[in-house]
Simulated assay, not measured.
Amino acid sequence: MKITAFLNPKGGSGKTTATINISSCLASSGNKIAVVDTDPQMSLTNWNKAKKAAFDVYTAASEKDVYQVRKDLAGYDFVIIDGAGSLSVITSAAVMVSDLIIIPVTPSPLDFSAAGSVITVLQAQAYNRRVETRFLITRKIEQTTMLKVLKESIAQTEIKAFKTSITQRQSYVKSVNDGAAKGEIAILTREILEILV
């Protein structure tokens, strides 16, 4: 079983949208997927009640719940942790149990600035274990100055960005239901699998 966590304490960075779409893509390939909702607002849990996802959803109310994930969800192929919209001890726990950390960032200085706190947690825990980490650019609009600035800012860190970004599309708000969005998520999921498997 492999664990991936989407972490950025900035709300609106695209964590839950990316979690839903990547998890759905993995499930459509026949994988058994568990998603752990760590956000006190329980956005993903509430979404699941309305939509009935192709994956199982669990909630984690404390860091203890997150530390138990590897043991409690051992029967799954992949576990995806949807990080909270704030920096907390749950963020540290998610870093400790994960095989891959994905930091979603929109082309916004606030998103990238907030991502710095996740990097600080990663650096603080580096003496215990090194965990693969990637930036994921979300809500991308081509040819914008802010996108260029974001890519330059990422290049100044030691963390790579995925080659595939999530483009700003209305279909992501609802679900992946147009061909371009589906293709984008499929390519991104392949990139994730290349790291995990």
Rank of each mutant, 00 (worst) to 15 (best):
V89C: 12
M42H: 02
K49Q: 14
A186T: 01
G116N: 10
S98L: 03
V36K: 03
K151L: 07
L122D: 05
F78T: 09
S153V: 08
L100D: 00
R70S: 15
Q41E: 08
V69L: 12
G75P: 08
A84V: 07
V118S: 05
L100V: 01
D39F: 04
E132H: 07
A114D: 14
L147D: 11
S113K: 13
P107E: 06
T17A: 09
V97S: 04
I192F: 00
K174E: 12
M146I: 02
G14T: 05
V197M: 01
G83H: 12
K182T: 09
I20W: 00
L136N: 00
R129C: 13
I166T: 00
Q41T: 14
T59P: 14
L150T: 14
V69P: 07
T133R: 06
I33R: 02
S86P: 05
I90C: 09
I187W: 00
Q170C: 09
G85A: 13
S24W: 14
V121T: 13
L7W: 10
T45H: 11
A84N: 14
K10P: 01
P107N: 08
A54K: 07
D82K: 05
V176W: 00
L73V: 14
K182G: 09
T45R: 06
G12N: 02
T120N: 09
S117Y: 11
W47F: 07
G30V: 09
A27V: 11
S43N: 12
N46G: 06
S43Q: 12
I102H: 03
S171W: 01
N128G: 09
A60W: 07
T106W: 05
E132S: 09
I185S: 03
L147E: 12
G75E: 15
S13T: 11
P104L: 14
M1Y: 07
P107T: 04
F6R: 06
A180G: 09
A74D: 15
Y127H: 10
F78H: 11
K2I: 05
K71W: 11
T189D: 01
L188K: 03
K174C: 01
V66D: 11
V79I: 15
S23V: 02
S88D: 14
Y76S: 15
A180H: 00
I20M: 07
V105D: 04
T164E: 08
Y67A: 14
A54V: 07
I80D: 00
D111H: 08
I81M: 04
A126I: 03
S86Y: 12
R134F: 15
T133A: 05
